[in-house]
Design a protein around this nucleic acid. Structure first.
Length: 573
RNA sequence: GCGGAUGUAGUGAAGGGGUUAUCACCUGAGGUUUCCAACCUCAUGUCACGGGUUCAAAUCCCGUCGUCCGCACCA
């Protein structure tokens, strides 16, 4: 076994032993692709998600929403997920190549998309379809590849088909009208949502990398495609990003994001800007900047909705893993929902710089004549006349109505009407830039990058989880030097006081030698350990030990929670 | 879904047709200890599930389930 695999096993078993990440439902045998966050991991995840939400909402034009995970089928039909996820696959028995069954029979059927698996198998057999890879004609039966968990809304047969959402994004699109009102009809604006997404993976592998139920965090940023946003790239003027463009577009380069946008390596400046903001987030929660790269999707691998997509990949025990997808989705989703529902509220209003005035003369039916003459068709006649610029053909003339019939218009049935109006703008479909984060994958890499076994002394074998304080599950360990002479009472009081402070969590540990307790705290990444000794009883001061180097200072106990809250302990060493 | 491997305490491992299943770490209690996994004593906790063979199954056989690895799949 390689060293890397051995390290991975030690990390995994530590995560399980210390209650960070554990296989779910284990007493019932476990289920691949489902994990629990334990007493330590649960808080780590919460801190990570909170950091993420704060990172985006601090921008000022982004709000948080939350929508159901159960999603009616029609939503996912409109979004394309049902079509995309419902394909049948055929596998070649000879070379194990897997192909979409409908593509295999595309030449043999006008609309293979609608065929059942039996029909597909029959067509493949009839036409002796060859495997595109190896030429064999021996196929396994077509099987559906729907990766969504289905369910029903409502009991019994009357229930409506629904799916567990495969992404959170649709919730933001459903709420577009509410967001548009909230932001007083002004683009750009965005919404974030964090929560669970579901994919019924055929065979989940690689631990936290491919899950059946996973934590997502997605941002939809709505922009006017006609307006070039001036993004401020100055925070990253000396930060070189590792960029791996689509091979058709160029070689991997290191470049600051502003330049990459300017030189069109990244095609859209807003995409570049979100890539930069994403980089900053990842680094702020403890991802090693050396292990981040951005890779552009190739045309063939692009999701069905995306027009340009860059993945943030993080390097860890499983190699380079896609952890964030930043996609320019164009107007795909809003348009899809608009045409599926006919809803008129999925657009934004763009005022013209100079209002367009309309000044024309058209024909206008005379109601008192047309009404009796055409009765039920009168309305259509009015509409058709209104489209004819004055003076129009000389009467009598034939007029085509939009219901296909033709009527004869006599003089006196209409008059000329002068129309003068001003158009101040137009309705358009906003475009969307979507950064979508796989929280579990990021969390995994935080742990992976923080897991330090370099040890101290000769024997090595000392584990420290070097988590950033902002994501550390526990802020501080409270350790009485010994559990006697009143040290334990004082320690317990401090512990309870810290825990009562908003956003702070401590834990009390009085068992084992002081060194063992430091080691336990280090292993789950507690950044600070407070030790209460006899001097504490007399002077009201305690020692603060820094996880990363064991250095200690002594501070008054009543300053503890304020120092922890303000994160200024670091500067006191 | 296919092929291979595998399932023994919280973790990691050893063992194996025989009645009390072993070891280390971990965890807990007590002792000791005035700051970095010290030490001593004690304790909790385990053979995935179901069936078969057998006087006796954790061990052998069959099945199921789970897990791991490879193939394939993977917005």
């Amino acid at each position: 076994m390689s060293d890397a695999n051995a390290r991975l096993e030690r990390l995994t078993s530590m995560l399980k032993r210390r209650g960070i990440i554990l296989p779910a439902f284990e007493i019932h045998g476990g289920v691949a692709g489902l994990y629990d966050f334990g007493p330590v991991g649960g808080r780590l995840r919460r801190r990570l998600v909170d950091s993420w939400v704060e990172h985006w909402t601090s921008q000022g034009d982004i709000v948080e929403i939350d929508s159901p995970t159960i999603t009616p089928e029609s939503v996912l039909i409109a979004s394309g997920h049902v079509g995309e996820f419902n394909d049948y696959m055929s596998e070649c028995k000879a070379c194990s190549g897997a192909f979409r069954s409908d593509h295999l029979v595309a030449q043999n059927h006008p609309n293979p998309d609608i065929l059942t698996s039996e029909q597909l198998d029959q067509l493949i057999a009839e036409h002796a379809i060859e495997c595109p890879t190896c030429g064999s004609q021996d196929w396994n039966d077509a099987r559906p590849m729907n990766l969504m968990f289905d369910t029903r809304i409502g009991a019994m047969k009357g229930g409506r088909t629904a799916y567990m959402r495969p992404e959170t994004a649709q919730g933001m699109f459903m709420l577009y009208p509410a967001l548009y009102r909230h932001f007083r009809n002004r683009l750009p604006f965005g919404a974030v949502q964090t929560g669970k997404g579901y994919r019924n993976e055929i065979s989940p592998r690689q631990g936290m990398i491919r899950l059946r139920e996973f934590n997502m965090a997605e941002l939809e940023y709505f922009i006017d495609p006609a307006v070039e946003i001036e993004h401020d790239f100055t925070p990253w003027t000396s930060t070189l990003f590792n960029l791996v463009p689509d091979p058709e577009h160029g070689e991997p380069v290191q470049m600051v994001p502003g330049e990459a946008a300017q030189k069109n390596v990244i095609r859209h400046p807003t995409v570049a800007w979100f890539m930069a903001r994403t980089w900053s987030f990842l680094v702020s929660v403890g991802i090693d900047p050396e292990k981040i790269r951005f890779r552009q999707h190739e045309g063939t691998e692009m999701a069905h909705y995306a027009t340009d997509c860059w993945d943030a990949e993080i390097y860890g025990s499983y190699g380079w893993i896609e952890c964030v997808g930043i996609a320019h989705r164009g107007c795909f989703d809003l348009q899809a929902h608009e045409s599926a529902t006919g809803d008129k509220n999925l657009r934004a209003w763009r005022p013209y710089d100079v209002p367009k005035s309309v000044d024309k003369t058209v024909l206008s039916g005379v109601g008192s004549v047309i009404g009796p003459a055409f009765r039920a068709n009168a309305g259509k006649v009015h509409d058709a006349l209104g489209k004819i610029d004055a003076p129009g053909p000389s009467p009598p003339f034939e007029l085509d109505l939009d219901n296909g019939s033709t009527v004869t218009i006599q003089a006196g049935m209409y008059e000329e009407k002068h129309i003068q109006s001003t158009e101040h703008g137009e309705w358009f479909l906003p475009h969307v830039v979507e950064p979508a984060f796989g929280i579990d994958r990021i969390l995994w890499h935080i742990l992976d990058h923080a897991f330090d076994e370099s040890g101290k002394g000769d024997d090595g074998a000392y584990t420290v989880l070097r988590l950033r304080p902002r994501v550390a599950p526990i802020d501080v360990a409270i350790l009485p030097l010994m559990e006697k002479d009143g040290l334990e009472e004082m320690a317990m009081r401090i512990h309870q006081k810290i825990c009562s402070v908003r956003q702070l969590i401590s834990y009390y540990d009085g068992s084992g030698s002081i060194g063992r307790r430091y080691a336990r705290a280090d292993e789950i990444g507690v950044p600070w350990a407070i030790t209460i000794d006899h001097e504490s009883l007399e002077s009201g001061t305690v020692t603060v030990r820094r996880r990363d180097d064991g250095a200690q200072i002594r501070i008054p106990v009543d300053q503890l929670s304020s120092h922890l809250t303000s994160e200024e302990l670091e500067s006191m060493f």
